[in-house]
């Protein structure tokens, strides 16, 4: 078992990342107000809701999960055009955004306290209004699968109720390349694209916390790492083989599918960066680390 502190840190990651996702959601909602057909914005809102839902399930914040689940269903409709994006809907989505913030504040300050009556009424009220937009549950399910596939988010719904499990069917691969890989004539691109041929890179995040600022950074040295969620039928040995040529120049950690939270915590503690939130899949493309050009 991970100790209490690790669990607390891990939960902090959840709250921080959820708030980042909410910020991204808000920005996209505001752009949607200007252009109600902007697909990127709808995708980003969907991603945020979807990821918060998955993570909430994992951390036992079921009410946030329940709420974002309904929200997500409406967004599926909006994205596939079965629900039109009216100013009223955008208004409702903004209210939902604010409400998720309320829920996060609540659970962060006092995890085990039930919601107070006023919040419950708000909760039900918003759910009722959201549900009015969803005509047909069966249809939503199908559409959702399609959306998830199209925009490449991880479906991290948690069906495993009995334990904290990172319920996805992906390998998790952490790579930290050595400083000299470029100079040694090796390009991480080749290895990772080769990996992509052996399965599906569901999610990948570049890690560059350890890259120096300003003059200290040397352009020909490598400061990069990657956190990868990889879906494939190949085994651990075969994954390691992909990185065979770079094995002396790269720190590789591999976690099998359906790894327990405790093992993820261990991995995070093992990694060189102090802030390791990014290990955790939040599909953070929406969180604006690098903006669109």
């Amino acid at each position: 078992m991970a100790d209490k502190n690790s669990e607390k840190n891990f939960k902090n990651v959840y709250f921080t990342e959820s708030r980042e996702l909410l910020d991204a959601m808000e920005m996209s909602l505001l752009s949607l107000e200007k252009d109600s057909e902007d697909e990127d914005s709808i995708n980003s809102i969907f991603r945020a809701a979807h990821t918060i839902k998955g993570n909430s399930g994992m951390f036992g914040f079921g009410r946030i999960g329940d709420f974002t689940h309904v929200l997500e269903n409406v967004l599926v409709g909006a994205r596939s055009g079965t629900i039109s994006v009216t100013p009223e809907l955008i208004g409702l989505l903004l209210e939902c955004h604010d409400f998720i913030q309320v829920l996060l504040d609540h659970y962060e300050s006092e995890e085990n306290r039930p919601l107070d009556q006023e919040t419950e009424i708000l909760f039900e009220g918003l759910i009722t209004r959201l549900n009015k937009y969803i005509p047909d549950a069966e249809n939503v399910k199908k559409l959702k699968e399609k959306v998830i596939e199209e925009i490449g988010v991880i479906d991290s719904s948690f069906s495993d109720k009995d334990g904290l499990r990172v319920a996805n069917d992906c390998w998790h691969i952490s790579l930290r390349f050595g400083k000299n890989v470029f100079k040694d004539g090796l390009d991480p691109y080749s290895f990772i694209s080769y990996l992509g041929e052996k399965g599906e890179i569901v999610n990948i995040r570049s890690i560059y916390e350890n890259m120096p600022y300003g003059e200290e950074m040397k352009g020909d040295l490598c400061y990069l790492g990657f956190e990868i969620d990889f879906r494939s039928g190949i085994n651990k040995k075969e994954i390691e083989d992909v990185f065979d040529f770079v094995i002396n120049d790269c720190d590789i950690r591999i976690l099998p599918p359906n790894t327990s939270i405790e093992d993820y915590v261990k991995l995070i503690e093992d990694l060189p960066e102090r802030t390791s939130g990014r290990v955790f899949h939040d599909n953070g493309k929406s969180s604006g680390r690098t903006s669109c050009g």
């Binding site: 470029f182 691109y189 890259m211 600022y213 352009g219 490598c222 400061y223 990069l224 690098t290 050009g293």
Partner: peptide
């Protein structure tokens, strides 16, 4: 291009944000 080029662009983006400047790829 290779990954060092990719890294350089990430670096410049971060550096610009850090200096309060704008960096955009057209």
């Amino acid at each position: 291009a290779d990954t060092s080029g990719f890294q350089l662009l990430l670096f410049l983006k971060r550096e610009a944000a850090n200096l309060g400047k704008s960096f955009r790829i057209t």
